[in-house]
């Protein structure tokens, strides 16, 4: 017994050793900041650090929640992300169904094009959109030809959230079809043949075969998106917004950035950060639980 146990232990030691470097880095740079969250309950200054800064209890939270624009920022975040998620899912589904109806060569060309924006950073896309959407950009040139008055996509706070939503859709809808297309390809072709024998037309097949076949993936995608409710896209907002549209365009993440790293209110910004992380964690945990129950989904 002893002899058979030894090599086993040694081989397990190899496994522990392999995982060690990644684990060590995560402990420092992912778990370290989690401990650092205590600064939300302190009057933190970098000089005094986490161990020397005085404790202030819930004062930072009370102060932040009493700020008049805090509620607005939370509302902006929810509005933008809910619209992006809902419209994103619907559009991706529609595009997938349309792609399913065309010939392979054309399908592949369209796919190749509509995936591209996903892989570029918001800096590149922001640089492009700030120009394209400006009052002298091609979008307003096009609207002018149609006889429509120029629209201030980036400088009008009643329009700006929709600029964010639609530019997000422009970047991500194409790529979001990948998962739906994968679901489509797993539908048994015999179901279509059977439907044809029963005299089903195109729409009938779509309604009675395609959509039910995709239902688990649609549910899964919808459920997993719950975790992103408080992520309205820092990179995008940061690149496209300006003080004129703060009232409708400022989101939690940009608010934290300005409060913390621009104005150096470290503890206040961290309090907002905890607020966001905690709610997000609840949402993500809930979404994974639902995904597991509804679609038997496991991450690992």
């Amino acid at each position: 017994m002893k002899e058979s146990k030894r090599p086993r232990n040694r081989s397990a030691a190899a496994l522990h050793l392999m995982i060690l470097p990644a684990l060590a880095l995560l402990l420092v740079y992912s778990y370290g900041p989690m401990l650092g969250l205590v600064m939300a309950f302190q009057d933190f200054t970098p000089a005094q650090g986490w161990f020397g800064s005085p404790w202030v209890g819930m004062d930072n939270f009370k102060y932040v929640f009493s700020l008049p624009n805090f509620k607005q920022v939370v509302w902006n975040t929810l509005f933008i992300s809910i619209m992006e998620i809902a419209l994103g899912q619907i559009l991706a589904l529609v595009v997938t169904l349309l792609l399913n109806e065309v010939k392979n060569g054309f399908k592949r060309t369209v796919q190749t094009i509509i995936y591209i924006p996903h892989f570029l950073s918001w800096i590149i896309l922001g640089g492009i959109l700030l120009e394209v959407l400006s009052l002298s950009g091609i979008v307003n040139m096009f609207l002018h030809r149609l006889g429509i008055e120029p629209i201030s996509f980036l400088g009008d706070s009643s329009i700006f959230p929709w600029t964010l939503i639609f530019s997000h859709l422009w970047k991500e809808v194409g790529f979001a079809t990948i998962i739906f297309l994968a679901a489509l390809s797993s539908i048994n072709p015999q179901l279509y043949e059977a439907a044809e024998i029963d005299g089903a037309g195109r729409l009938r097949k779509m309604w009675n075969v395609t959509l039910p076949g995709m239902a688990p993936i649609i549910i899964l995608a919808a459920v997993l998106s719950i975790g992103n409710l408080l992520n309205a896209g820092f990179d995008q907002v940061f690149t496209l917004y300006n003080p004129v549209v703060y009232d409708t365009g400022d989101i939690i993440d940009t608010f934290v950035y300005r409060l913390g790293l621009v104005q150096s209110h470290y503890s206040l910004a961290t309090a907002v950060g905890i607020f966001k992380s905690t709610i997000s964690f609840t949402f993500v945990a809930l979404s994974y639980y639902l995904a597991y129950r509804l679609a038997d989904y496991r991450i690992f």
Partner: peptide, 19 residues
């Protein structure tokens, strides 16, 4: 331990402080 870091994060300021 690995997956938890996707679910929860220390956020911007503590991460900055650690760096």
């Amino acid at each position: 331990i690995f997956v938890f870091t996707i679910l929860f994060s220390g956020g911007l300021i503590p991460s900055y402080m650690l760096v």
